[in-house]
């Protein structure tokens, strides 16, 4: 891990990632442009290209390679680190974001492929210290142990309540099926999801 490379402990993991991001942007300036296809739109990359994303209502232009996932773009380039990178294979759900109203695995989505979409991350839920009702419900129900899966579960629950304002347990189980809690806190997650019903806000 990054922090082990810094014996004095003066560089945080997040700062390290920012540095890496800046380096890849600088390298991109020198990267040759890919040849243009005979017809149709030009190929972008493989070096960094401007990618326009609307994240939590704010337009951002990131200079990133086409291979950068939405998750890595949001965490490492837009500095919104609420959603977690866990399996990075579309299996665990910790990276769950809401794109155009529906949950997606941001680790399995290219950032460049969701330009023009409305992207919501867990970072955009709270109003300062004022938590979103779903976040409040997770706290009240003690719906987490280690907490690493929680951002994904919170986003999946927000989507659940937008689809079913007063969900049944069966609806909650089905809509949260794409998220895994390895501590096994599922019952309290469901409790939180059901108790947050009817008090949803954007």
């Amino acid at each position: 891990m990054a922090q082990n490379d810094d014996p004095a402990g003066t560089v945080s993991r997040r700062d390290f990632i920012k540095t890496v991001g800046a380096t890849s942007v600088a390298a991109g300036v020198l990267a040759p442009a890919a040849p243009v296809t005979a017809q149709g739109p030009a190929a972008l990359g493989p070096g960094p290209v401007p990618v326009n994303l609307t994240i939590n209502g704010r337009a951002r232009t990131l200079q990133i390679e086409p291979r950068v996932t939405l998750l890595d773009a949001v965490r490492d380039h837009a500095n919104l680190t609420g959603n977690k990178r866990v399996c990075d294979r579309g299996t665990c759900g910790a990276c769950t974001m809401i794109v155009d109203g529906r949950t997606v695995y941001s680790c399995s989505t290219l950032a460049i492929d969701v330009q023009g979409s409305r992207i919501r991350t867990v970072d955009g839920l709270a109003n300062g210290d004022d938590l979103h009702p779903v976040q409040e419900a997770f706290c009240a129900a003690d719906g987490m142990m280690c907490g690493f899966c929680t951002p994904g579960f919170v986003m999946a629950t927000v989507a659940l309540l937008e689809k079913y304002p007063k969900p049944t347990i069966a609806q909650a189980r089905r809509e949260l099926d794409g998220n895994v809690c390895r501590c096994g806190t599922f019952n309290r997650v469901f409790e939180a999801a059901l108790s947050a019903g009817g008090v949803n806000r954007g």
């Binding site: 017809q39 149709g40 739109p41 190929a43 972008l44 990359g45 493989p46 086409p66």
Partner: peptide, 23 residues
């Protein structure tokens, strides 16, 4: 993953042409 270039065509014929763009 290996770095790659990205093409985002808006119609079928552009997509099919892009599939033949080499490599």
């Amino acid at each position: 993953m290996k770095a790659f270039a990205y093409v985002n065509p808006s119609n079928e014929s552009d997509a099919l042409a892009a599939l033949r763009s080499g490599g």
